[in-house]
Design a protein around this nucleic acid. Structure first.
Lengths: 130, 130
DNA sequence: CACGCATATTCTGATTGAGGTATATACAAG
DNA sequence: CTTGTATATACCTCAATCAGAATATGCGTG
């Protein structure tokens, strides 16, 4: 199963969101999401096969935690649209900045729009030649 | 249909990627993706209903272009994991620091001192439910 | 009006994936 | 060894969805 299909499932997104804070056992997920245990296990199986999570064994328990890979790929696909958005909504553009260099920057307070962000390609109104 | 399911479809992602550069007619999408016309129209219908794209009428043609909303929501969901990634990398570095203590290892590129690292913010629950 | 082009819709069959229930495996403790 | 707990898997059924073919609609032009 492919990464985008994996996160199309609300329960799986819920599990991933839970695991963002800390690693959890199956039982803890089961309780927090109020979802039958076989369902949790099945979703975890899928998530593990796709590399979203990994598990370590602790006696009878399995402790699941996030793995960054697949979600980063999804994020990479979204990257191409961020430029497009900034042309429409510039409130979101700072959040873009912070991704890889956030820790070096003092908190930006400036509210001005239209900075270094390039506009999307000029689009033809009619641009058909055929 | 819900946003995450929409982009689970490879053809729809391809269409969205095409539209990032400029608006296109159905026929242009059909040719660029080498996909039968009814398929294109059906996917566009779904994308339009979900607010990913919008269309304007130009004689017999329809010109489709991106709308930012739904993709932004997806991006917003991913936001919570970006914090995790940086924390994860930091934790890995700290771990390696301990493992390789006193050994010679290639000097890593500038790393902030352990104490200075911005910690992930305390989790505020943004409700994602089934 | 009739034709042709661009796009949309409908129908069908096949596949896939989710939920539920029951059961299997693994381990810890008495 | 027996029991209880934690997790995984198997099996079944149902609903959703995709691809493909055929057909319908809308519009400009001769």
């Amino acid at each position: 199963m492919e990464s985008f299909e994996i996160i199309a499932e609300p329960s799986r997104r819920a599990i991933l969101s839970l695991l963002v804070s800390s690693q959890l056992s199956v039982g803890e997920i089961e309780r927090q999401l109020r979802m039958p245990q076989p369902a949790v296990s099945k979703h975890l199986r899928i998530l593990r096969d796709a590399g979203f999570v990994e598990a370590t064994v602790d006696a009878q328990r399995r402790l699941y935690r996030l793995k960054p890979g697949p979600l980063q790929e999804i994020d990479a696909w979204l990257q191409q649209f961020r430029r497009f958005w900034s042309a429409h909504i510039d409130a979101l553009e700072r959040h873009l900045d912070r991704m890889y260099q956030g820790r070096n920057r003092p908190a930006p307070k400036e509210r001005t729009a239209t900075k270094k962000v390039a506009r999307a390609k000029p689009q033809d109104h009619q641009g058909e030649k055929k």
